[in-house]
Design a protein around this nucleic acid. Structure first.
Lengths: 135, 135
DNA sequence: ATCCTATAGGACAATAAAATAGTGTTTAGA
DNA sequence: TCTAAACACTATTTTATTGTCCTATAGGAT
């Protein structure tokens, strides 16, 4: 019942990028150092975030990473789900509906509700808000 | 970001016991069969729930398991935490405060809030409520 | 007393997932 | 063209999860 280290790193990395003025590029290695993330681990995370369309990367000398959108248009939920996949508090709470019990299983219901609440909260939290709190 | 199978099994087992009239004892093997839980796995789960004080066990012939309290006095949170340990959405959200960053880390804050909300919901859900929904 | 049944609990196996390291390739700016 | 940086793999290490199995032990019932 915890997000992975990867997702936490991803959130910190995105917040770091959001805090750079003028949307300048930052090297993965720099982000890694400042956020204390194992560099080669962060590389993979950056890659996934890029595939998810959350940030742009550019290769070559003076290359680096930037946010693909305005911080206020990136939600915590997007970043977490890009890394950890969709949030699912219990196995039976899935699209396919793998629950082998009743359709009106009370256990499934309560997890669905709790999950919806959590997802809603993460969805309404964007990175502009997170930045504001630091200052 | 998911409760373990163990915790899910525990919840189903407790709900099963709650549904037995007159608080009669049920054998672990019976519960296992009806809830489709691997029997020897359930034995260990039952043991943990017993240590946590959520249910009473009695050995010997015609022994079995009963709830230690009224279903309405057992919360979903208690059962889940008895098995999975305290709910912690992110590593930095812990008692010791292992977060190596600022005290006012915005990331930590948002996870704390989301976690509090989730915990509150699980705490206010008791097994009498869950039973009511089945009927 | 002595069966018989059911919990208690430890050892251990099989996956699975998470976290990290490493290595070479490709790209593009200076 | 040299170099810095992302990219794409692969491998390794560690830890958690999900079980199984086996033996001990307690306690009713006869």
């Amino acid at each position: 019942m915890q997000i992975t280290r990867q997702a936490d790193y991803a959130v910190r990395a995105v917040l770091h990028l959001a805090q750079i003025k003028n949307g300048e590029r930052a090297a993965t290695s720099t982000v890694a150092k400042e956020q204390r993330i194992p560099p080669s681990f962060l590389a993979k995370i950056i890659s996934q975030l890029s595939i998810a369309g959350l940030l742009h990367t550019s290769r070559g000398a003076r290359g680096g990473v930037t946010l693909a959108r305005d911080p206020k248009d990136i939600t915590l939920l997007e970043v977490v789900e890009a890394i950890d996949g969709p949030i699912q508090l219990n196995e039976c709470v899935a699209e396919g509906g793998v629950c082998s019990f009743d359709d009106n299983c009370p256990i499934r219901d309560v997890w669905c509700e709790a999950q919806d609440e959590l997802v809603a909260r993460l969805k309404k939290t964007d990175f502009a808000q997170l930045m504001a709190q630091t200052a």
